[in-house]
Lab assay of single mutants.
Amino acid sequence: KDKDLLKGLDQEQANEVIAVLQMHNIEANKIDSGKLGYSITVAEPDFTAAVYWIK
């Protein structure tokens, strides 16, 4: 199951987060929520590491 990592990002921010996570071998998903911006989700086992790397 995926957990929400970040919400309300613009496309550039979302792409930067995806890139950082991929560099650390964390699979992440970018979801277009329309006017609400983009959300990033990661698998539950990767959540703690993902939070660490996006600081």
Score class of each variant (00 low, 15 high):
23 M>W: 06
6 L>P: 02
53 W>I: 13
49 A>W: 09
25 N>H: 11
7 K>R: 13
40 I>C: 03
24 H>L: 04
39 S>T: 15
4 D>R: 12
13 Q>L: 07
30 K>P: 03
32 D>Q: 09
47 F>I: 04
46 D>F: 09
40 I>R: 00
38 Y>T: 01
6 L>W: 05
1 K>R: 11
41 T>N: 03
17 V>P: 00
17 V>S: 02
9 L>P: 01
53 W>L: 09
46 D>H: 06
39 S>M: 10
49 A>K: 10
26 I>T: 02
10 D>F: 05
35 K>S: 11
27 E>C: 11
6 L>S: 03
28 A>N: 01
33 S>M: 15
21 L>P: 00
22 Q>N: 10
19 A>S: 08
1 K>H: 10
35 K>D: 12
5 L>K: 01
12 E>P: 04
41 T>G: 03
50 A>S: 04
14 A>D: 01
30 K>Q: 07
34 G>A: 04
13 Q>D: 05
25 N>R: 06
33 S>A: 13
45 P>S: 15
39 S>K: 13
10 D>T: 15
23 M>S: 12
26 I>H: 02
40 I>W: 02
53 W>P: 03
3 K>E: 05
15 N>G: 04
49 A>H: 08
41 T>L: 09
37 G>M: 06
3 K>A: 08
54 I>V: 08
40 I>Q: 01
48 T>M: 13
14 A>H: 03
28 A>M: 01
6 L>N: 02
7 K>E: 09
42 V>P: 00
36 L>G: 13
21 L>C: 03
43 A>Y: 07
54 I>L: 12
41 T>F: 07
14 A>W: 03
3 K>S: 05
18 I>N: 00
44 E>T: 10
14 A>Q: 00
22 Q>S: 11
15 N>D: 13
38 Y>R: 00
11 Q>I: 13
25 N>F: 08
20 V>K: 09
4 D>L: 15
15 N>T: 06
1 K>F: 09
7 K>M: 11
31 I>S: 05
42 V>W: 03
40 I>N: 00
43 A>C: 06
9 L>Q: 01
33 S>L: 15
24 H>C: 07
55 K>A: 14
12 E>Y: 10
50 A>K: 02
30 K>S: 09
44 E>Y: 08
51 V>I: 12
13 Q>H: 08
18 I>E: 02
11 Q>V: 11
33 S>W: 15
29 N>K: 14
35 K>M: 11
47 F>A: 02
3 K>G: 04
25 N>A: 07
4 D>A: 14
52 Y>I: 08
49 A>L: 10
44 E>H: 09
23 M>L: 12
34 G>P: 04
22 Q>Y: 10
51 V>K: 09
47 F>P: 00
55 K>T: 15
46 D>T: 03
36 L>P: 05
18 I>H: 03
20 V>D: 03
34 G>Q: 04
43 A>K: 13
40 I>A: 00
20 V>H: 08
38 Y>N: 01
15 N>Q: 08
32 D>C: 12
51 V>L: 14
24 H>R: 04
11 Q>D: 13
54 I>P: 01
54 I>A: 05
31 I>P: 02
49 A>E: 11
11 Q>A: 13
49 A>Y: 05
28 A>F: 10
50 A>R: 00
6 L>H: 02
8 G>Q: 04
12 E>L: 09
21 L>G: 01
42 V>I: 06
30 K>C: 12
31 I>D: 02
31 I>W: 09
20 V>S: 04
17 V>A: 09
8 G>E: 05
46 D>W: 09
50 A>D: 03
35 K>P: 14
2 D>S: 13
54 I>M: 07
2 D>E: 11
32 D>F: 13
20 V>I: 14
40 I>P: 00
38 Y>L: 06
39 S>Y: 09
7 K>L: 12
4 D>G: 08
7 K>G: 09
37 G>V: 07
17 V>K: 02
48 T>R: 11
28 A>Q: 00
5 L>C: 06
